Amino acid sequence: MSPPPPPLGRARKRDAQLFDPALCDAELVDVRSQFTQGRWARARALLVGTGDDWDRRGHRVVVLAQTPAATAWAREWLLAEPESADAATLLACASVFGALRHKGTPAAAEEACRRAAALLPADPTPWLGLLLLSRAFGSEEEFSRHFDQVRARHREHHHAHHLMVAKLAERVLVSGQDPLHEVYDFAAWAAEESPADSPLAVLPVVAHAERYRVLAATHGHSPEAAAAHWAGRRARQVLRSAFDWWLEWERDDHPRNRVDLNFLAHAKLCEGRPAEAAALFHRIGSHATRAPWSYPDRDPQKAFLAARGVALGTA
């Protein structure tokens, strides 16, 4: 039986922490607070300790790279340790986010990523930076090449597969009905190619959410359209398989686990299964993610809190 909803006061306090990209990585949260003050030694120790856990390394680098003045502090670290692949990778990803905020150039960010990649060729993280960059500024060919580079280094790279699904979902369907769109086949293939305990088992659910984002932006959003999108045979099969996978494996140890749970909870509500969504909301806690609650063009905080209220019966 699921635990009861938390007391309202505690829930409100936690709601203020919604959408923290660090998710449930408490060590990262602590290090980030010091890194924002220029204390990069703790960031150095964190990344050294992360080692070649590539999903965790990518998650931690991306979160640190989004902090204010990340470029300046990473550059200071690199000046102190010119051969540090960790410093170079953090600077590269910080440069990517700077370019995305129009506070730097894509060319400079790309150069920084390639320098970092040369220092530690086995690391997919600089290529993740290039993938994020090409998602915004590059061609489809560049994006696909960068994805291949990430996957060559880590076949199950969680963040990279989510980016690829989001990109593929935006391709125009040339012919046939939406269930024939290529994004569904890609997500199914990636899930099938991965080990049984891989979080990519949830990727087909992400594909349906990303495709809904595109369809709603194109054709308009309505409750009826949302219900129809999740009512198809393929969607129902995908949701059943993903929920069963979560019950068996859960993978609470994965750094981006809460990303998957948010997508799955969103889908379960769209499918009309609030009881199953409630179990997921209990696991999510305060670790909401903007996607998919912002789909399509919604206030993610209002959408998340409303959905959680419906699922937990507190609305």
Rank of each mutant, 00 (worst) to 15 (best):
D178R: 09
L47E: 02
E81V: 09
L264P: 00
A99Y: 10
R171I: 01
H102Q: 11
D260M: 13
A26E: 04
A85W: 09
R42L: 09
N262I: 04
V62A: 02
A265K: 02
A187F: 10
W127C: 00
E142T: 09
R12W: 07
A160R: 02
H282L: 05
V183R: 14
L91K: 05
N257T: 12
L79P: 00
D260G: 09
W245A: 08
H59D: 03
R60P: 06
L312K: 12
S286P: 12
A80C: 00
A227F: 14
H102F: 12
H157F: 05
L28W: 10
E141I: 15
A201M: 09
H159T: 13
W246K: 08
L239Y: 04
H266S: 03
W73P: 03
E271W: 05
F143H: 11
V183M: 14
A207Q: 00
P121V: 13
A118T: 06
H282M: 05
G104W: 12
A169I: 09
G232Q: 07
H159D: 07
F281H: 02
R42A: 07
V150A: 01
Q34V: 09
R153A: 00
E193W: 15
A311F: 13
G285Q: 01
A278R: 15
T105G: 01
A117L: 06
D86T: 15
L120N: 14
L305A: 05
E83N: 04
R283S: 01
F19Q: 04
A235C: 06
A118S: 05
F97G: 01
P296R: 14
P121L: 11
R290S: 06
A216D: 08
N257Y: 07
G138M: 15
P300S: 07
Q34T: 08
F304V: 01
D197A: 14
P179R: 05
R10V: 15
A216G: 07
